[in-house]
């Protein structure tokens, strides 16, 4: 009985985190982006500095008509948001926030699980892009696919470097093996992982697949109401997952300069929050990369860097053993 209760509680906690954290990131993005542009951002919803803006947005989305274009492939069109969103929920299940048992579900081959399932999420965008019967959506879908193929490889290689360093592919195992000097050692891999993750999430400056000034909103052009909201939610859930993963893999998760016992999960959350801020910061600062620049960055910069990182990791590993 207590086992069942434990499982239910864990699932519930992960689900709540899944619903709350993306909204927190979204609200932070509203506010941070506004202030970086000399604006105030939402000020009314909820009273105090517009804290409930995203709740209000959700209510608005729920009230909208759910439109399926006449020429669309109905079932796939309707299924796509769920395919885009669910993988991030699954990934969140495997990210450890604290030492010991503070993880939704321990997965033996954690890195592979996380990266594999994140890759599945992009299928949602592809399905949406194809099923909308809209040329802009189709273009968005093609760009999404091209971007995923280009950036999946450096992301995997960077993650493999950490797995080599730690000698394990389980996420809690990697954090357990972490020492502070891993940060300078793996910094290149960390940057490659983070950048590739941003590209996979189609966050600016890598938002060519949804470039609103040329292809409206890419694969999501034809979506309205709740399904559109699900796509947006999956983007922000993706930010949470990416930042959490980078924290766990490269920044030592719950290790901190002090307060290691009991407060470890706070360190994880703090690092994740800082990274989420960086995601927003990058979005505000840089203009969108052109499609050829996107591909060039992945194939000629990130992959060589990731390979160099793997070589460095291997050399250090052999020398120190």
């Amino acid at each position: 009985m207590s086992d069942t209760l434990d499982v239910v509680l864990r699932l519930l906690a992960v689900f709540v985190a899944f619903l709350v954290l993306p909204l927190v990131v979204g609200q932070t993005e509203h506010k941070v982006m506004a202030h970086m542009q000399g604006r105030l951002g939402p000020m009314y919803a909820g009273g105090f500095h517009g804290w409930a803006q995203l709740v209000a947005d959700g209510v608005k989305f729920a009230q909208k008509e759910d439109v399926v274009p006449a020429g669309a492939d109905r079932r796939i069109f309707q299924m796509a948001p769920a395919v885009a969103l669910l993988p991030y929920l699954l990934v969140l299940l495997a990210i450890p926030v604290g030492p010991g048992n503070a993880v939704g579900q321990t997965v033996d081959a954690g890195i592979f699980f996380v990266l594999a399932v994140m890759g599945v999420g992009v299928l949602g965008s592809l399905m949406a892009g194809w099923a909308s019967a809209n040329k802009f959506s189709l273009l968005g879908g093609i760009r999404t696919a091209g971007q995923l193929i280009a950036y999946e490889l450096p992301m995997l290689l960077a993650a493999a470097s950490v797995a080599m360093a730690a000698g394990t592919v389980s996420l809690p195992g990697i954090v357990d093996a972490f020492h502070w000097w891993w940060v300078p050692w793996q910094i290149v891999g960390a940057v490659v992982f983070f950048v590739a993750g941003l590209a996979e999430l189609q966050r600016p400056p890598f938002d060519m697949p949804v470039a609103d000034s040329e292809i409206i909103f890419g694969a999501y052009t034809e979506y309205t109401g709740l399904r559109f909201a699900l796509f947006l939610l999956s983007e922000y859930a993706g930010i949470v997952v990416l930042c959490g993963l980078t924290t766990v893999l490269f920044l030592g998760g719950w290790h901190g300069p002090f307060g290691a016992d009991g407060m470890g999960w706070l360190w994880t959350l703090l690092k994740t929050a800082v990274l989420a801020f960086v995601v927003i910061w990058l979005r505000v600062t840089y203009p969108r990369l052109r499609e050829d620049q996107l591909q060039k960055l992945a194939w000629t910069v990130l992959i060589p860097l990731a390979l160099a990182q793997i070589a460095l990791t291997g050399v250090v590993k052999v020398v120190t053993q």
Binding site: F112, L126, I142
Partner: peptide
């Protein structure tokens, strides 16, 4: 690895070609 390679990459490549 099956999910990563086949679902995440091969099918995406396939869909890319179809699109």
């Amino acid at each position: 690895v099956q999910v990563l390679i086949y679902v995440g990459s091969v099918v995406v490549l396939l869909l890319f070609g179809l699109m």
